[in-house]
Every structure is written in structure tokens, then in C-alpha cells.
Design a binder for these strands. Structure first.
Lengths: 247, 247
DNA sequence: CGCTACAGTTGATCTGGATCAAGGCAGTCT
DNA sequence: AGACTGCCTTGATCCAGATCAACTGTAGCG
């Protein structure tokens, strides 16, 4: 719940809000103002960030780590509705109450802005509000693509889609790898995957085992995944060859 | 594909973009500019508006009628990812290609803005880009709420959720009705409902019959629905009493 | 009028994924 | 060490919803 660890202006590298504020028109004033209302928060893996319905008096950008957005029904059924990776935005200007549960999946650092001044900034700066609009539109597209996964894909296709997304996101961050052979560490437990995909954890486990048996993926331990032929994985997603599934 | 039918400045009553442009700061210039780039388009029920991947050189606001946003897999499985009712926004500033299929479900009239000048306007007017941001955030929340429906709810809960949403939306438009007893015309075929809910049309039909048999809904013909006790319907959605499902 | 077409209902059967249950395999605490 | 806990796998069985198929009702239309 503390730990700044970032002091220099330039080190919050993944924060898209700030980047744009710097680059777009060199609006120095805005940048300096942003600096005055920003602060860092850290959470340990597993810790909740907020619960749906609770007061949330900041908006933030993920700097390090992964967080999940989930919804839960009274009887405990839960659905993950978003996965927040570094550079993703969290919170909602104009709303003081969280709509979803936010949980740190790995150790997590957020770059936070107090909500009120941030909203003020939005009102006065078209640069920032446009950047935010763009990001929100991307998230909306991603959410809608995910609706196809949830509503119409088989368990096997769901797993393949999820692995493809994580592999792609991973490739963006570490562009060293060939597109054909990728390896990464699954940031999610089987249960979290199940919650994302609308399945049970048993089904997730079985489908991963099946993909392994068929040589479409290789595992080292439970979490480290190697995809020998990305095209073969893609063929299992049910998407047409080029299609672009985000997360 | 023509039919203006709107000539007076004030008559595009449902268009949220324009409203805000008038109200927020009385930015007369912007309003007049908006007028010069706006035009109307009409579509008959069943007609496509655009296909995913096609060029889309306007953004628009639904004035009259209903449109659907859908995705289709090569083998024909389709998922509806959004339902556009009057006042909803269509299109994506900053992107010239449609991400989803848009189809007129009923006869439809759009209030369109040519994309390029609209984007220009966004860049210069914080009022409009903020209004758009707000709308997009609402849509994102709605999409995420829908992910819970698709991923975790039973067929019966899905149907009840859909009926509840349509009833609520309907009550907003016609505030004359008591909240307890509502009646409306289903704007969707059984197949369209199935595509929205990630079910088959047979299952939709069976579940509606079941709700009818239990007196939770009453039907006149196939489309006209009466909900004698909204609370009882809500109890079938699986949501906690107050929860706010949008569309 | 009969013919076709479309939307919806209902029944019979099948099956993919859920559910229930039993272990396995690290870590980590004592 | 042993015991406990969290995460994962695998097997056996069940069932909600898909699939296949027949049929009803209603609206155009030559």
C-alpha cells in the first residue's frame, strides 16, 4: 500500500496518459500538474485493489504486474471481465464507485491520480481526454471480441484463444522472439483462466492436457508454456487466419 | 438510403452528441459546424448498415429504430455484441474500418457525421470528446456486464436478463408505465435473441414458454410481452436485487 | 384458392462440459 | 522429517442445452 520507487519524471514509462501529455503538444503545464496529483501504490499478489460498489477515489495506470476485473454473483459464480496488463487504465472518470472487483493477480504497482483533479484535467485538456477515449474504445472492442469467445466458442477454442492472446501480448513486450516459436509464463491459475473463459477449472486443465498431448503446446511445469508453431495454435481458436483478438 | 425528414435544428432530439454541444457551454460555432457535416440515412428492417472490415466513413447516432452489432465465425456461429437503440452511438473515431457487422433490426434512421470533420471537431472540442468518452465508458461497462451473462448464467437466467433489460430500456422511453407492470414489443426474433445470449433459438423458445407457463411473463402473439410483476422476473435473472444491467 | 416462405413451438435424442471425487506434486511451516 | 496447503490432474458420472426433426400459425402472392 505504499512504495513509490519512482522518483524521476521519465520513469513511469508505461503510463500512457503521461506519455501523451508529454509528447502530443509538449504541454508542460499539464505535465507538471499531473506530477502533483500522481502517486504510486503497490499490492501483493492476491490482494484486492477494490471491491465492486466501494468508493474509488483515484484512477490509475498499471505500471508493473497484472490485475483482474471480475464480477461475482451471490452464489459465487464469477466471471473475469478484463485483464489489466502494464499500461492498461483502471477506474472511471466521472464515477466515484467501482463497478467491478479489481484484484492483483501478480505483485502490482499502480500509478494513481486522484480522481477529482484528474477529472478537472480532462475537462481542460483535449489531449488527455482524447487519449483516454482512444484507450476506452480499444477496450470496448476487446470486450466485444471476448463476447464471441464466451458466447460461441467451444472449451478448446476458448483455451486456444486465451493462449494466443497472452502469447501475442507477451510478444509485444519482448519483441526478441520469432513469431513462430514463443515461450512465456502463464500469469493465471487454472481457476483464473476458467473464470476468464466461463469454464470450470477441471475443463481448463483437461483442454490444456489435450493440447499438450497433440503437441500444439509444450509445458515445463504448470505455468511455463512453449508454443512450437503459433499458426497451429491459431488454427484451434476458430478465428479466421488474420483476426486480431485483444485482451 | 435517403430520407432526411429532419430539417429543424432541434428535432434530432435523441442525438446525444448534438445535445451536449448545445447545452454544455453554448458553443454556437461548434453547433453550426456540426450541422454542416451531418446528414441522415435510413435503412429498412433486415438491411445491413456495414460489414465488419468494410470502409465506414461516418460516425452516427441512432435516431429511430434498432440496430445490432454482430460477429460471425467462418462456420456461421454468430454472436451479437451490442444492441443499438435510439441515442446510441455507432462507429469509431480514429478508425476507418468497421470492426463488427451492423444490421438494421427494425426500420432505422441514423444521424451521421462524416468521419474526418468529426474527428477534427473532437480534437478541438473537449466538450464533445468528453461526452463521447462518457458514452463509451457506459458501453464498456455494459459489455462487461454482458460478459457475466454469457459466461456464467443459465439459459433461463439469460432470457430473464434480456427481458429485464428490454423492459427497463422501454420504461425509460415511455415513463408512463408503473414499474411493476410493463408491456412491450420484443424487437428481436428468437434467433436474434439466441445470438445475443449465446444460445440456440430452440432453447430461447423453450425458456420463454417455461416463463410463460409459470406466469412470470404473458404473451400476446409471439412478440408482445407483458410482465405482470417485474420483481418476479428480476428474481430469475440471478442478479442481486438492485443490480443494474444495461444493454 | 393453394403455394411458398418465414417465424415459432415442441418432441426425442445426443453430447460437451459440469459436477463429484480421488490423488499428485511442489513449497513451506513446525 | 512429517504435515499441511495451494495448485493441478485425472477419472466417473450427470445433465443443461445442442442438435435433429416434425409440425403449427400466419402472411404474402400469383
Amino acid at each position: 500500500m505504499n512504495a513509490p520507487a519512482f522518483t524521476d519524471n521519465r520513469d513511469c514509462g508505461t503510463c500512457p496518459i503521461r506519455h501523451r501529455a508529454v509528447c502530443a503538444r509538449c504541454e508542460k503545464e499539464e505535465l507538471e500538474y499531473l506530477e502533483t496529483i500522481k502517486y504510486y501504490r503497490s499490492y501483493e499478489a492476491g490482494q484486492p485493489v477494490v471491491w465492486a460498489g466501494d468508493q474509488l477515489d483515484f484512477v490509475a495506470s498499471v505500471v508493473v504486474g497484472i490485475a483482474s476485473l471480475t464480477q461475482t454473483m451471490e452464489d459465487g459464480r464469477t466471471q473475469m471481465v478484463g485483464l489489466l496488463l502494464p499500461s492498461d487504465f483502471l477506474g472511471r472518470p466521472g464515477r466515484s464507485v467501482a463497478s467491478f472487483n479489481v484484484t492483483a493477480i501478480s505483485d502490482l504497482t499502480l500509478c494513481c491520480f486522484r480522481r477529482k483533479p484528474f477529472e478537472q484535467l480532462l475537462r481542460s485538456s483535449p489531449t488527455i481526454s482524447q487519449r483516454l477515449l482512444e484507450m476506452t474504445l480499444d477496450e470496448l472492442d476487446a470486450a466485444r471480441e471476448w463476447m464471441l469467445v464466451l458466447g460461441r466458442k467451444t472449451a478448446r477454442e476458448k483455451i486456444a484463444s486465451l493462449l494466443a492472446i497472452i502469447a501475442r501480448r507477451n510478444a509485444q513486450l519482448h519483441p526478441g522472439q520469432t513469431p513462430e516459436e514463443t515461450t512465456f509464463i502463464l500469469p493465471l491459475t487454472r481457476e483464473a483462466m476458467a473464470d476468464y473463459l466461463g469454464l470450470t477449472l477441471e475443463t481448463v486443465s483437461r483442454q490444456i492436457s489435450a493440447l499438450k498431448k497433440e503437441g500444439i503446446v509444450e509445458l515445463e511445469g504448470n505455468r511455463r508454456i512453449l508454443i512450437p508453431d503459433f499458426g497451429r495454435l491459431l488454427a484451434e481458436t476458430g478465428d479466421d487466419a488474420d483476426g486480431g483478438m485483444p485482451a
